[in-house]
């Protein structure tokens, strides 16, 4: 069941999206977010949707994989959807008991769900098409100016890339511990919140203990491989911006501009 969590997973491939410089992709995601948060009408949200659909199409990532990524967020989505649906003023479409559904409510709910989906999917598209190392490399390079004010850019990106590397390992381990506890009669699926939280304790404790041991061993292994901070470090895969990168950036700037214009026009 934990295996369903696809956060941070990378699907290797050789499409134009995969080949883009990670810095381009990071900046594009930011531009895309700006467009998404500006958009508030059917046309502007539609434009943002098309942008994502276009990128997904080129990347050859199955749309199903993006939808699956939404699963952990399902609760929040449904919760906000209900709030929007029942508590928005407008022309009443129908009522039932104390609830009433308005046209504005339906409209806002659809828009909101679509926006959450677009928000989450775009970050998934980024991690699906960019290897964690590229991603953290790109981040390190983008944030490099902050080194001047003593911000630990290299350390942060190293921490992130190691965290991403260990997510699958720790998930696997959690699964193993859970099965072991289940075999001993532990019950994670029934009972109230307090009972379930208590049932989690025998999982969390060994998980933490093992995570600390791993961290310790990993630190030693890194030292053995001559790791001594970011100073004087080179990279096998140097980042290089190509024509495609600049064109992509231009395209995304146009999308932002388009979204702003559409919103101004009230579409």
């Amino acid at each position: 069941m934990l295996k369903d969590i696809t956060l941070g997973q990378y699907f290797p491939g050789d499409t134009p999206v995969h080949r883009l410089d990670p810095r381009t992709k990071l900046v594009c995601v930011i531009l895309y977010f700006i467009a998404l948060f500006t958009a508030n009408g059917p046309c502007s949200v539609g434009l943002v949707f098309l942008t994502l659909a276009f990128a997904v199409g080129i990347s050859r990532i199955r749309p199903g994989a993006l939808v699956k990524g939404m699963k952990p967020l399902l609760f929040i989505v449904i919760f906000t959807a209900i709030l929007n649906l029942f508590f928005t003023e407008g022309e009443v479409l129908f009522r039932w008991w104390i609830f009433r559904v308005t046209d504005q409510g339906v409209y806002r709910t659809v828009l909101m769900v679509l926006r959450i989906f677009l928000l989450v999917s775009s970050t998934f598209l980024l991690t699906y098409t960019t290897s964690p190392l590229q991603l953290t490399d790109g981040m390190e390079r983008l944030l490099a100016p902050l080194k001047k004010v003593r911000f630990p850019v290299h350390e942060l990106s190293m921490m992130m890339s190691i965290a991403l590397r260990f997510i699958p390992t720790l998930i696997e381990e959690t699964d193993k511990i859970m099965s072991a506890q289940k075999a001993r009669g532990a019950d994670f699926d029934t009972g109230g919140l307090a009972k379930r939280a208590k049932a989690l304790l025998p999982i969390l404790v060994p998980l933490f203990v093992s995570a600390f041991r791993r961290a310790d061993e990993l630190a030693t292994a890194m030292e053995c491989r001559c790791y001594h901070g970011g100073e004087g470090r080179t990279r096998m895969k140097t980042l290089k911006m190509g024509v495609g990168d600049y064109l992509t950036l231009l395209l995304y700037c146009l999308v932002v501009a388009g979204a702003i214009v559409l919103v101004r026009l009230g579409l």
């Binding site: 990378y10 290797p12 290897s131 964690p132 190392l133 890339s161 190691i162 991403l164 590397r165 390992t169 041991r213 791993r214 061993e217 990993l218 292994a221 890194m222 491989r225 001559c226 790791y227 001594h228 470090r233 080179t234 990279r235 096998m236 895969k237």
Partner: peptide, 19 residues
């Protein structure tokens, strides 16, 4: 498991020479 630092095999092997 506890000596592999990167999420792709070749990136991991590159770690030491990079350092």
């Amino acid at each position: 498991d506890n000596q592999i630092v990167a999420s792709v095999v070749e990136d991991d092997v590159a770690f030491a020479p990079e350092n």
